[in-house]
Design a protein around this nucleic acid. Structure first.
Lengths: 261, 261
DNA sequence: GAGTGGATTTCGCAT
DNA sequence: ATGCGAAGTCCACTC
C-alpha cells in the first residue's frame, strides 16, 4: 500500500521542508496551489498567477497542469533534472515558495512560484505493472511480414526498414509478377505527405535499379484528395486496419518469421 | 482560494459518491490508488495493476500517470468526454471502482479500475492567468517580416504562408538582385527533412514560374550531414536564433507591418 | 552523442 | 468537419 502524507494549507515554510525532503528522497509530490510559472530554454514562456496542480515524480519529471486540457502548461521531462527549492520574500512582505527544475541538455529551466499552497501530498508509489500497446505502426509491419497475403496475394517480403537515401522503407518485397514492391505503412488516414514519402523512396530506388517498381501505400484509409495524387504517381493503395493487424499477431499461426522480428 | 476536499483511504462506495458528484459538477478530481487500465480505440492498451495518479479535469480530460515519466500512461483529451462511474464486484468478492471515459470522435475509451484508493481530492481551481510563449516558429517568421535584413541585406518579403502545391511556404520574397526567394523556417536544428521540404517547394514553384529561384533555409543550426545536401541542391542556409527573433519582436521599432501580422 | 521517424501524438488554423 | 503542419513536442532506436 502506498504511504501517503497529506498537508492541507500548510505554511510555506512547512511545505518547503516537506518538499525538499521528498524530492531528495525521490518521492512523488503533488501540489495544489496558486502559482505563477516561468520557463526558459529552447523557448521561453510566462504563466501568470492562478490555481494549478504541480507534480514532481520520482525520476525528476515536473508537470504543471491547469484545470483544463490534456497537456501540462509547463513541464520538465525526468531523467537529468535538478531541483532547487527555496523561499523568498516578495515586495509586499509576503513569502513565496520557489520550485525550480533545471536540466542541461538542452539547457532549460522551469520555475514555479507558489504564493499559497492548498494541498501538498507526498507519496511513494509502487508501480511495476506491465504496459502493453497493440496496433501500432510497428504491429502493422509485423503483420504484413508474418502474413504477406493481407497486402496482396503472392506478395513476398524481402526486407524491412531498409535504408534508402531519403530515409527508411517500411517493407520491401516482390509481387506475384516478380516486380519490386515498396510498401509504406501508416497507422492512420494517409494524406499527401505519406504519398510523397513513398514516391520519394521509389524515385530514389529507380535511380539504382532498372527493374519495374511498384509502390503500395498501406493505411486504414486515404485522406480526401489523396487518391488523385496516387493515380498521378501510379501508386497503389491497400486499406488495412491496424487493429486487424494486431489480431493477426495475437493468434500465432506463422511461426517461422518470429525470431526474424 | 480553491475549495478543496480531501478523503484519505475512503471506502470505494464513499469514493464513488464523491467522484460521481464531482465529475457531474465539472470539478477537478485527483485520485491516488491501485488500479489497472484498459484503453480501446485507435489502438488498444492494457496496463496491469499498480499505484498511480489519476486526474479528471473540468473539461473532461483524463490523465493516468505512473510514478515516472513526463507522459501519462493512459489519457483522454478533454472536450467531448463522457464519464461512466460504477462499482463492481470481482471474483474474489472484492469490489472495484470503475472510472470510464468515452468519446466518439474518434471512438475510444479509457477505463480505470481502482482496487483501492489512497487519496481522493476534489477541487475547484480558479485559473485565468495568461500564458505567453516566446520564440516559436511563428515568432521567427514575424521577425523576418518585420526586419527582413536579419535574413540578408536587401531582402524584401512579398507574402507569407503562401500555398503552393505540396504545402505552405513560410516566407516568400525577393532578394537584392531581384531573384525570387523561398524561405523555410525551422525553430530547431534543421535536418534533411527540412531541406527536402524546401526543395520540394522550389521544385513546385519552378514548374510555374520561369524566373530564377533561390531557397533559404532558416534555423538555429544545421544537422551534421545537411550542408552537403544543401550544396547539392543549390540552397542557402541562414543561421537564426529563435530567441533573437523573439527579442526583435519585443522591441517594436518597425510599426508599419504590425497590422499585417 | 546526434540523427531519424513514430505517436492512442495533441493542438490550432485554414479550407 | 477535414486537412495540414508545428510542437519547448517526447521517446525509442540506430549509427
Amino acid at each position: 500500500m502506498a504511504k501517503i502524507e497529506t498537508l492541507t494549507r500548510p505554511q510555506l515554510e512547512t511545505a518547503y521542508e516537506k518538499l525538499k525532503e521528498a524530492i531528495e528522497k525521490r518521492k512523488t509530490v503533488l501540489l495544489i496551489g496558486t502559482c505563477h510559472v516561468d520557463y526558459r530554454g529552447r523557448a521561453s514562456s510566462k504563466l501568470e498567477s492562478g490555481e494549478r496542480i504541480a507534480i514532481v515524480k520520482e525520476d525528476g519529471a515536473l508537470l504543471v497542469h491547469r484545470p483544463k486540457g490534456y497537456e501540462p502548461v509547463n513541464w520538465m521531462p525526468g531523467g537529468n533534472t535538478k531541483f532547487h527549492i527555496g523561499i523568498e520574500k516578495i515586495e509586499n512582505g509576503n513569502k513565496i515558495l520557489i520550485l525550480k527544475a533545471v536540466r542541461s541538455k538542452p539547457t532549460e529551466s522551469v520555475a514555479v512560484y507558489f504564493e499559497t499552497i492548498e494541498l501538498l501530498v507526498v507519496s511513494e508509489l509502487v508501480d511495476s505493472g506491465k504496459f502493453s500497446l497493440y496496433a501500432s505502426e510497428h504491429d502493422m509491419q509485423k503483420a504484413i511480414l508474418m502474413e504477406p497475403s493481407i497486402l496482396e496475394e503472392g506478395f513476398k517480403p524481402i526486407s524491412f526498414e531498409k535504408k534508402v537515401e531519403p530515409g527508411f522503407v517500411d517493407v520491401y518485397g516482390i509481387d506475384s509478377e516478380g516486380r519490386l514492391v515498396v510498401v509504406e505503412i501508416k497507422r492512420r488516414t494517409a494524406g499527401r505527405e505519406a504519398v510523397l514519402q513513398l514516391a520519394k523512396y521509389i524515385d530514389s530506388i529507380k535511380q539504382k535499379v532498372s527493374r519495374e517498381i511498384r509502390g503500395i501505400l498501406v493505411a486504414p484509409r486515404l485522406a480526401k484528395g489523396t487518391q488523385r495524387l496516387l493515380d498521378t504517381l501510379g501508386l497503389d493503395f491497400k486499406a488495412l486496419d491496424p487493429k486487424k493487424c494486431a489480431e493477426i499477431l495475437s493468434k500465432p499461426k506463422v511461426r517461422g518469421l518470429e525470431e526474424f522480428l
